[in-house]
Amino acid sequence: MNIFRLFGDLSHLAAIAILLLKIWKTRSCAGVSGKTQLLFAVCFITRYIDLFLHFVSLYNTEKVMKLIYISASVFTCYLIFFKFKATYDGNHDSMRAEFLIVPAAGLACLINTKFDAIEILWTFSIYLEAVAILPQLFLISKTGEAETITSHYLFAQGSYRALYILNWIYRYHYESHVDTIAIVAGVVQTILYCDFFYLYITKVVKGQKIVLPA
């Protein structure tokens, strides 16, 4: 564990907490893409499938973190699609999730470290996570704006994988550890946030709201 991965995971936890708080406090999921949250839930379940297969006692923080990620993302989907369904902006959340899931699954079968079920599921989860934020970014571009709290959520969510890139540089240099699939997908994922990061740093930090040129 190094400082970059630690802050990366904390940033990821913060993102999940910010989104839950936003939906719970405002009792609304306006401006939040339900599809992105579903894709994240699928990512966590397929990536941490080992939790279900051979359930080992919760002996370390890693297992606890995995359970937190899975339960929080499933709970977020429950809030969006059931509890606060009336506030779900379905017609703006219109990116076809199949266009993300099918290519990720296909690519996972073609490019992977080892052709076995667990490894393919993990690879699928990595590829899917790289593009999972697209429906959310698409929704913001359609509505033309993002609530400030949603911007903070996106900033934390984007920072998590950006910090993981620093973690991979660190591990390459000090532990000669390389996981090409995770690195390439992580770089693609972070690149997708670039224009949002620019808007966030130039606008939200100055207290303005993000309004996209419609």
Binding site: D9, E62, S176, V178
Partner: peptide, 10 residues
């Protein structure tokens, strides 16, 4: 560089 197949990252 050694490839650690064990997934030790979240």
């Amino acid at each position: 560089t050694k490839y650690t197949l064990r997934k030790d990252e979240l």
